[in-house]
Design a protein around this nucleic acid. Structure first.
Lengths: 140, 140
DNA sequence: TATAGTGTGTATAAAGATATATACACTAAG
DNA sequence: CTTAGTGTATATATCTTTATACACACTATA
């Protein structure tokens, strides 16, 4: 099984964190099926051009999260992801992305009104502009 | 002088790196004028809710880049930014952004042809699709 | 059954990067 | 000189990453 992980050498984000984030996403999104045998830590490390220990840490962290199941001498497998965990993951991913966007807006002194306007415009464009305009007070 | 730095607590990007990147941008873009006295490391650290040493490192790094001028017992000032440095900064910023975009393309197995096609389309859209195509007198 | 071989994950030690607290040194002003 | 403001140096803890050696599990084969 080839695992498509993309490492950005220039990023200040720690290596293990880049791998962990992407692998977690692949598992929870279902792109890697439950029960799949992941590459050995040596093979994975070779492909990513990093140390065996770094991959080991990723596997261990994700096992602690319940996403992986590891057996010494045998290998590391993808565990089942409950619907609750999947929902939690989606929520967190969206929440963090929005949070970052709002931070950026504030850093350039964008007003709340401007921000809301931009957001509605983007949502309307990306989602087709029909659905959930709940409480639609902003018709601008 | 208030320095608008936005810290993302959740980011895996090191604290000093977040501060450094944003302050560098403020200086080179000219949003902070040459000769400006920056906050003392204690005042700055207090505002950012971090250690004095972290701010000290940022000031030192930027001084090594020639962007700041520091005098013990007095304070830290913004140095002049030459046109060359400004150009270099712009170049690096664009280069890194493009690099990241290409990395992303590769991570989703986008072919070079597709990538080039998308790029040309975007450039045409963003720049109006008229002017300098392959002129060659670019800086570099 | 026994055992050697090759594959797996695991433990230990060490180096470098990041962040902090605390004490020290310099400068300007009273 | 004293004082209150600057930046600076030292020691320390934690995080990130690595190299190396060790322990466990399957399998071929005698």
């Amino acid at each position: 099984m080839r695992i498509p992980i993309q490492i950005n050498e220039n990023s200040a984000e720690p290596l293990y964190h880049q791998i962990e984030t992407q692998l977690r996403s692949l598992i929870i999104s279902g792109q890697i099926e439950e029960g799949t045998l992941l590459p050995s830590i040596r093979e994975f490390a070779g492909g990513l051009n990093c140390s065996v220990i770094t991959v080991r840490r990723v596997y261990q962290d994700l096992e602690n999260e319940g996403l992986l199941r590891t057996r010494q001498g045998t290998g590391t497998f993808v565990a089942g992801v409950g619907e609750q965990a999947r929902a939690q993951f989606k929520h967190d991913a969206v929440f963090k992305a929005l949070e970052a966007a709002v931070d950026t807006a504030q850093s350039v002194h964008c007003s709340e009104e401007e921000l809301r306007s931009m957001f509605f415009k983007i949502v309307e464009k990306k989602y087709g502009g029909k659905g959930g305009e709940i409480g639609g007070e902003s018709s601008d």
